[in-house]
Nucleic acid binder design. Structure first.
Lengths: 330, 330
DNA sequence: TTGTAGGCGTTATCAG
DNA sequence: CTGATAACGCCTACAA
């Protein structure tokens, strides 16, 4: 069923049907006739053909590291919600933590001629840059700072400093750190930098033994907490760079018979759902992931509406604020 | 940049380029020449034009009630993972719990001529059926039983019975029930039916006071637990139809000074991430959401490969099993 | 092995 | 206000 058949049935030309569907610059007679036929047949114009003609897909590609991750899901929630306001559809690229897949989706999205791309990144390699540069479509990067492209991120450095300062103010001087590898700049580099800088700013020497690095898993938090507590000079508080790590950390501590926060304090970062559900409730820093998604989507839409064919060198980097949530683990 | 320009630069006809891109039935001379040009220009054939010609979009529409929900995210993880194996791209329809939006996406997906639809449903209305019937595309429904269409669901009825039986076997005879409205058949109807049937099967009379119905929120669990505990004839165990409700329930119980499971037992259903993280760890029933997504995707792909233009009356309903996870709350 | 020509379903331009 | 006609970029007979 296509526009020509509708035209035939309604006894008009296909241009008239097309006009009816778009500007509506059609006589009443023709209108009612066409309307009738369309309703009877359940005709819907094909987007592919429209796209072919107009070169506007109304498609946005969204790349996420892993959709079943709470943070990614929240970001996507925000992105889709905002985008649907503007009539965009979302092509989702779930990368299952594979960098190859990120590249693949970048390419696939190009072939689908998406109007724009939201890229929730973890690690950005030179190859990413190369691809992004030849993409010719507005791109907004989320949750990771990136050179030459607009990005929206949380202020990891200051969030981390604030967390440490909070612990310091509570009287802790020996603060263990559970982090992740530096390939992830936001989580691995910035949050560690915040930790160190805050300690130094308060005149406390960095004890490298207190700095433990693992991966993102809960087990990692568990294991590193053990390391920390088996040190001769044990910390009185532990700051983990994600809630997940903090939960793993608490799991070990509870098993080992420590009372939280009496014997040792624990602090996380991110304020995922579980933070308010564990016992004791985790003191952490709230990150506005959904809002991040909303803002990222809005920014992308702005670029598209400005007719930009690339956002390279559009260095409008937004840094999101955060909020310290005091619960029961410190 | 299109196939004609490439042809011109390579000194061949556009059909040769097209062949190079597809079957590859091209002389070596031409091949190397074309390859060179494509690499230099970074040309990528446009999907829209291909689709136009081939009428195959390689697009699958996925409708979810709310993507930031852990269950939905897990299902989508499975769906996207499986679909990407077969080279499909995913258009995501995040409905933010609005039935209108479900309809909208059904329509949008039709206009994009998706090759198939995965529909993670909550409530299915006659209007849904009407739309689905005229869609002319394979549809697989997930997590909700639906007439006339293939669907994959968890065995809510038996899961619920098993949960109750477990409680019974632990010596509880007065079991409170926290449920949700019947508009959601899987969660609202089936799980309640399981509860009642198991009690009756064991010769225990149904006490309607022990059956409390609310919404899906944690607060609902909290509030209904309160109702239950203020009853004259208090239950010694509570079965909540979702983990979330169970968590809310536990929250109230702990606040009110009850010891779990000494004073009262709590059981959930779903085994979301938090279940293993709360204190005490929640005894619940594990649901395989990601696998459900995988299987749903596979089934859809099968239908597509069979060339079905509709899955109406393809009543291949799969019922997924589940697993009772015994933790510390019973 | 290659090129020519036609068409997929729209929208946009331009006369009428 | 309406209709004919030419694209959009690709694939695919068919002929050479």
């Amino acid at each position: 069923m296509n526009i020509v058949e509708i035209a035939k049935l309604a006894g008009v030309s296909k241009s008239t049907v097309s006009r009816y569907l778009n500007d509506g610059y059609v006589s009443e007679d023709a209108s009612t006739k066409i309307k009738e036929v369309i309703e009877k047949t359940g005709f819907v114009p094909k987007r592919q053909a429209q796209i072919m003609r107009t070169q506007k897909t109304n498609l946005i590609g969204v790349i996420v590291p892993k959709i079943s991750t709470e943070t990614a899901a929240r970001v996507v929630e925000g992105v889709t919600k905002e985008l649907s306001k503007y009539g965009y559809e979302v092509l989702i690229g779930n990368c299952e933590l594979s960098i190859e897949k990120e590249m693949d989706y970048l390419k696939v999205f190009r072939s689908y001629q998406v109007d724009g791309i939201i890229f929730m990144a973890t690690e950005i390699t030179p190859k990413h840059y190369e691809l992004m540069d030849q993409l010719n479509v507005p791109i907004v990067v989320l949750a990771q700072r990136v050179e030459n492209y607009p990005c929206i991120i949380h202020d990891d450095y200051h969030a981390s400093r604030d967390a440490v300062r909070f612990l310091l103010e509570k009287g802790h001087e020996s603060i263990g750190f559970i982090g992740v590898g530096e390939y992830d700049v936001a989580v691995g580099v910035e949050r560690k930098r915040g930790y160190k800088d805050e300690l130094m700013a308060q005149g406390i020497a960095i004890d490298e033994n207190l700095i433990q690095i693992g991966d993102f898993s809960q087990q990692s938090g568990y294991r590193l907490a053990k390391e920390l507590m088996e040190l001769k000079r044990r910390p009185t508080a532990i700051f983990a760079v994600t809630d997940h790590l903090a939960i793993g950390c608490m799991e070990y501590l509870k098993e080992a018979g420590y009372k939280i926060p009496e014997d040792i304090s624990v602090m996380g970062l991110g304020d995922t759902q579980i933070a308010g559900l564990v016992t004791p409730k985790l003191t952490t820093i709230h990150y506005y992931f959904q809002t991040l998604g909303v803002r990222g989507a809005k920014l992308l839409v702005d670029y598209i509406q400005q007719g930009k064919s690339s956002t390279k060198n559009c260095e409008s980097n937004f840094i999101f604020t955060y909020r310290l949530i005091e619960r029961d683990s410190v």
